[in-house]
Deep mutational scan, measured.
Amino acid sequence: HNLTITQGKLFFHYNPKLCLSEIHKMEEVSGTKGRQERNDIALKTNGDQASCENELLKFSYIRTSFDKILLRWEPYWPPDFRDLLGFMLFYKEAPYQNVTEFDGQDACGSNSWTVVDIDPPLRSNDPKSQNHPGWLMRGLKPWTQYAIFVKTLVTFSDERRTYGAKSDIIYVQTDATNPSVPLDPISVSNSSSQIILKWKPPSDPNGNITHYLVFWERQAEDSELFELDYCLKGLKLPSRTWSPPFESEDSQKHNQSEYEDSAGECCSCPKTDSQILKELEESSFRKTFEDYLHNVVFVPRKTSSGTGAEDPRPSRKRRSLGDVGNVTVAVPTVAAFPNTSSTSVPTSPEEHRPFEKVVNKESLVISGLRHFTGYRIELQACNQDTPEERCSVAAYVSARTMPEAKADDIVGPVTHEIFENNVVHLMWQEPKEPNGLIVLYEVSYRRYGDEELHLCVSRKHFALERGCRLRGLSPGNYSVRIRATSLAGNGSWTEPTYFYVTDYLDVPSNIA
């Protein structure tokens, strides 16, 4: 807008934040220059609390790290170098490059900038070799853009010569660093050979998330399962459950009422301010606690030095998902009996873990797994792929695949051998790939016309006998059925096997 004052003059007093240069501009645009008398524009009460600059400061050096910015700028000295009290560095987070010096300023003089007072450097006698002032900004957020400017702080001049310097606002972004852990990993099994893994992005990506790394490792069953005799009275049979499938998407929606109208769909109840505040506090606490764990609990591995020492970490090797089922080394339970199943799973520490690289999504279907087997899954978020990966501390989750139908069934015939004193040795093959492992066998036998009897055969007993022995049988026709019990439950009964026990007292003698 054009402003013209045809008559009258300007009068400025007691404006401590208004620089004289701005008042002189007002004289020019209003056409009143030359009308004012000496005392109409006070030299001592206008701009006496402001830094009124008329020179431009330029930054000469900028260096960044993930949490620091090192700045240096060209030296500046007023005509009387004693008038320079120091520099004021202003900075704040700036997602967009549209910041002005006066953003967030209120009537009390406060604003949204963080201000650092910096002492002037030592003055050199040689004007050509003056030290460049600077400042190291610490405690910054990774991968965050900051708006920065600097200006001088000078003393009051009796001659009211307006001098000083100020830089333009520059924008500097800190470097990326390792992201925080992925949030809320959930693993479920939808079949006997697959596990579905879902997660949420890290709360602090500290860069642009480029991919996720998912490692999985087959877990050995508890050692007590191999040692305890679950045929003993009072000892509860062990059981394991597989990871249940995901709930429906509708039930997972946030901010939804727990109660549904019987007449149909209901609208979600909005969260109160107290609920939102509580969630923010919980989120802040979780982030602080995660940072504490990362800094205190997890110790970084030592990389190899120039002395030739090897990095103890196993090298990563990509495998196809079809090879995942046989990740671990199978060892027989008892070496003397080769027909026992290889369900003991000690994992070799030198073995390469299978892994998958996930790009542009937060889910993965891990296939080719062994049925009813526990897996430990390790999830890392990465925001750099080359020249070397920059990934987060791992988040861990466990899951067990679903049982395989008929995996616990005894394959092959049940054979028998009759000894003296009416002892019958029953023999059968253990299931080759049971659900988890076989903890015991149930032997059901009966003599024709009598009630059915049951015998429990422990895992250890089966390994020693290759089956079991029935003792003290009365003469007669017998039928026997056997079924295995694994961590997933009972298998199917075998087809009945028949044998006849004679009275050993009636056996004919070869003595003449």
Rank of each mutant, 00 (worst) to 15 (best):
P205C: 05
N206F: 12
G207C: 01
N208R: 06
T210R: 03
H211P: 01
H211I: 03
H211A: 07
Y212I: 10
V214M: 04
W216P: 05
R218N: 12
R218K: 08
R218P: 13
Q219M: 06
A220T: 14
E221S: 14
D222H: 15
E224P: 14
L225T: 13
L228C: 13
D229H: 05
D229N: 14
D229M: 10
L232E: 07
L235E: 09
K236Q: 12
K236F: 06
K236S: 13
L237I: 06
P238W: 15
P238K: 08
S239F: 06
S239H: 07
R240G: 14
R240F: 14
T241R: 10
W242R: 07
W242L: 11
P244T: 07
P244A: 09
P244V: 09
P245Y: 13
F246M: 08
E247I: 04
S248C: 15
E249I: 06
E249V: 11
N255I: 08
N255K: 07
G264E: 04
E265Y: 01
E265V: 07
C267T: 06
S268V: 11
P270L: 04
T272R: 13
T272Q: 06
Q275K: 08
I276H: 12
L277T: 04
E279C: 01
E281R: 10
S283A: 10
S284P: 04
R286I: 04
T288W: 12
T288Y: 15
F289E: 07
E290G: 15
Y292F: 07
N295V: 12
V297F: 13
P300R: 12
R301T: 14
R301N: 02
R301W: 10
T303G: 09
S305F: 11
G306I: 13
T307N: 11
G308L: 09
P312F: 10
R313I: 07
P314Q: 04
R316Y: 02
R318T: 08
L321Y: 10
L321R: 09
G322F: 02
G322C: 09
D323S: 06
V324F: 06
G325H: 09
G325C: 14
N326I: 10
V329S: 10
A330M: 11
T333P: 03
T333D: 11
A336S: 12
F337S: 06
T340K: 13
S341M: 12
S342F: 10
T343K: 11
T343G: 11
T343C: 05
S344H: 12
S344D: 03
T347A: 12
R353Q: 15
R353T: 04
P354T: 12
E356K: 14
E356G: 13
V358L: 06
V359E: 09
N360P: 09
K361I: 07
K361R: 05
K361D: 04
E362H: 10
E362K: 07
S363I: 10
L364P: 00
V365E: 08
V365T: 04
G368D: 06
L369Q: 03
F372V: 01
T373H: 10
Y375K: 01
R376L: 07
L379K: 00
Q380A: 09
A381G: 05
A381P: 01
Q384S: 13
T386K: 06
E389T: 11
R390F: 05
R390M: 02
C391S: 01
S392K: 03
A395R: 05
V397T: 03
A399V: 11
R400N: 05
T401Q: 00
P403L: 09
P403S: 07
E404R: 05
D408P: 00
V414A: 03
E417R: 11
F419L: 09
E420V: 05
E420Q: 10
N422P: 01
M427S: 12
Q429T: 04
P431C: 09
P434K: 04
P434M: 04
L437T: 00
L437N: 10
I438N: 03
V439P: 06
V439R: 08
L440Q: 15
L440T: 03
V443Y: 01
V443T: 02
S444G: 13
G449E: 11
D450L: 04
E451P: 12
H454I: 13
L455T: 10
L455G: 09
V457T: 08
R459Q: 12
K460E: 05
F462N: 04
R466A: 05
R469K: 03
L470W: 02
L473A: 02
L473D: 00
S474Q: 10
S474H: 08
G476L: 00
Y478G: 00
V480H: 00
I482P: 00
I482N: 00
A484M: 07
T485I: 13
S486C: 01
L487C: 13
W493T: 01
E495T: 11
E495A: 08
Y500P: 03
V501P: 01
D503V: 13
D503E: 07
Y504D: 13
L505M: 04
D506Y: 12
V507I: 12
